[in-house]
Design a protein around this nucleic acid. Structure first.
Lengths: 405, 405
DNA sequence: TTTATTAAGTCAACTGACTTGACTTATTAC
DNA sequence: GTAATAAGTCAAGTCAGTTGACTTAATAAA
């Protein structure tokens, strides 16, 4: 059938959607609050005790939750708390960078169980994908050694790489990895692994990681400012990653620094690690770069400190911008740089400019340091399929179009 | 019961939620596509013909939809299209500004049926609210004269006024109307009208209006740049107004123009109507201001044109910022100014700077003019309760906490 | 040491919104 | 004319959550 109906509408839903949502709600509540009894869950989710009982029973049968010892607390029958079973699900996360790839396997609660990395030939997606598939295979083997049933419980493969995606105008930007942009990466990986594959940019991955196990845990409105080779903002809005109309929301590195600047200078020209490398005349493809920068930061190298001071000026402006436009509960600074450097940058960014975030009673700091670990992007990539499979969200309730052809 | 449980969780749902969602989906589909048959609706929403039939029957009984004449189109039984009944619901919208208030009544499809305005005493919420309640009463009387059943079918009262809300730090900004910020406005209006009351800022109201009947109709990602006494961005993200963690998202007028500017200049210092009035030495409280500005704009007054040129520089920067951070399908320029002036500003903003919105095949212009009508804010305010009552959204599926006290 | 109170959790029948599959109706194409 | 096609209905079926009574197990009070 070549029936391409122009009618646009939101999907309807039915009992399946209800049930799927309620399962997600249960698991989300356990993730957020730790162990909870059926009665606790009933109160928290507004469902009846009976409904919760049925759902928990099913989740237990499916291996997603287990009961703990009953606890006595005051009058009444003791309650039996339930908690998530980490081995209930796994996901694989893949970071693809210019010169290397990192892959991790995580479990349902976001613990990294296996990790592996490999170098990538520059600008050669075909060769790169061969290497990547090998790495993933290794990860899966190691994971199977840890948990026998893991293969059946892998919910997906998340990929993170530098964005933006789908543009052709910015050909001069080396960090966009043009060769990779044109390559049918997702399809190839899906075919090669048999897994559902999803794609995020680096900063989105960081944001997802922060929400699952970091500073944004349990927050519904948080922005993750990622300072890497480029600069991006990962947006958690209404408890979910926001991607924008074309999947490129949050590309704050491309924000013009000033309305009047004739040079068209953008944030990442001055505050990204690329600009640091340039200023210090370092070769980004050099293997020992990370350690070298770490050493310089520890030694408070004057040239590096000078860059930090300049970059921090621009970054504090970008935080004000983020607060002004998104009004998040907190902004999280993450980076592909060593933790020492990230701390130096954060310190140099304070005090922050006045913004609508200056409110009398703040529960959270305006700016805080996120996960500073070179595996955080791969972790975030892996967290995405977990979230997609288990977090409560609108799209999970809706019926999905089934028939293809 | 003083039971303030610290357990946080998303609400669960049940058949009521399913049914409520599906009703909303039907009405949304009819709003977006015009008249549709039951079979069309079934295909579009993925529900079965039978489910659609039941829901439509119920909606027809409740007076939200009616059938049209059957239409023959090719082989098969002719289909009976249904459309929304405008008189199915009404809402009242209220704009509160420094010196005046405007109120409108709209119907289910966003047609303005009644309008009224009145002057407000400056900085006197108590006296102001008395006037406002009188205006609303008049509106309701006029509406009842048009549609007998209207009183039973008013779904809410939407209020729009300049933001941001809930801050105390920016005491010097006259346009924030500090006296009004402290006054328990919503409670008083709810008590005085017996209606559900909601609050938005001006730019959010504009965005809601654009989505219901303007340039953002049917779009899920659009940003409305509102140039009024202040400047704000109304954010439609994932098909819904985004409010941020504290309800102040989109306050782009407070964005710092540059990381290095020692003066802390923000966008609305230079590009808002307040800055225009200041530069032309006009008194904002003068009654004939709107017409005066219109005359100047029509005459292409040099001083005004000079301001337009300067403001446009800053505004095109802000559009680039919006595109970079939100990646919307389109940006809509709206204004409290006369249409001539808005057109002058828009023209002066072109060409727009390079951004991620420069994509090969764009369906929509990057920037377009929105509703330029001094009643658009009141219209948007009125559209909010309609959307809240009838648009498909996540929160409408979830169970709501019932018991209080 | 009872006995009352409180709270967790289960049982079994019920409800209601969508689904299923067969059927009716009304057109057009051959 | 007859077949094909599509809209829409009928009536029984399914299933997830609801309801209200009940059971269990603990603490507080008499």
């Amino acid at each position: 059938m070549s029936d391409s109906s122009p009618i646009r509408a939101t999907s309807g839903t039915n009992q399946e959607g209800t049930s799927a949502h309620n399962r997600r709600v249960m698991m989300d509540a356990l993730r957020l609050n730790g162990a909870l009894s059926r009665a606790d869950l009933a109160r928290a989710t507004q469902l009846t005790k009976q409904a919760v009982s049925n759902i928990i029973e099913e989740l237990e049968r499916d291996g997603f939750v287990v009961s703990l010892d009953a606890v006595r607390k005051g009058r009444g029958q003791p309650s039996t708390p339930y908690r998530l079973v980490p081995e209930g699900a796994f996901a694989i996360g893949l970071q693809i960078d210019r010169h290397l790839t990192r892959a991790v396997a995580v479990d349902l609660v976001g613990t990294v169980l296996v990790r592996a990395e490999a170098n990538l030939p520059p600008d050669d997606p075909q060769g790169g994908v061969r290497i990547i598939l090998g790495v993933i295979e290794g990860i899966r083997r190691d994971l199977a050694a840890i948990s026998v049933k893991s293969e059946k419980r892998i919910v997906g493969l998340g990929v993170a790489m530098p964005g933006p995606f789908g543009l052709e105008e910015f050909g001069d930007n080396k960090w966009m990895m043009p060769a990779w942009q044109k390559y049918p990466l997702l399809e190839t990986l899906a075919a090669g692994t048999g897994l559902d594959v999803s794609l995020q940019n680096d900063s989105a991955a960081c944001a997802i990681a922060e929400r699952m196990v970091g500073a944004a845990h349990g927050l519904d409105h948080a922005v993750c400012l990622y300072v890497g080779y480029g600069i991006g903002a990962g947006l958690i809005l209404n408890g979910e990653l926001y991607r924008g109309g074309n999947g490129n929301a949050g590309e704050i590195g491309m924000a013009l620094l000033s309305p009047r600047g004739s040079d068209g200078a953008v944030l990442e020209h001055r505050a990204s690690l690329a600009s640091l490398y340039q200023q210090l005349e370092l070769d980004p493809s050099e293997p020992g770069l990370y350690e070298h920068v770490e050493t310089l930061a520890l030694a408070e190298d004057p040239a590096l400190i000078s860059w930090v001071r300049d970059a921090a000026m621009d970054l504090r402006w970008s935080v004000q911008l983020i607060e002004t436009l998104f009004d998040p509960q907190t902004v999280i600074l993450t980076s592909g740089a060593p933790e020492v450097l990230a701390r130096l940058i954060l310190k140099a960014m304070l005090p922050l400019p006045l913004s609508i975030a200056n409110r009398p009673q703040r529960a959270l700091p305006r700016l805080q340091l996120g996960i500073t670990d070179s595996w955080s992007i791969a972790l975030g990539a892996a967290a995405e399929p977990i979230g997609r499979a288990f977090d409560p969200r609108f799209s999970a309730i809706l019926k999905t179009r089934s028939g293809a052809s």
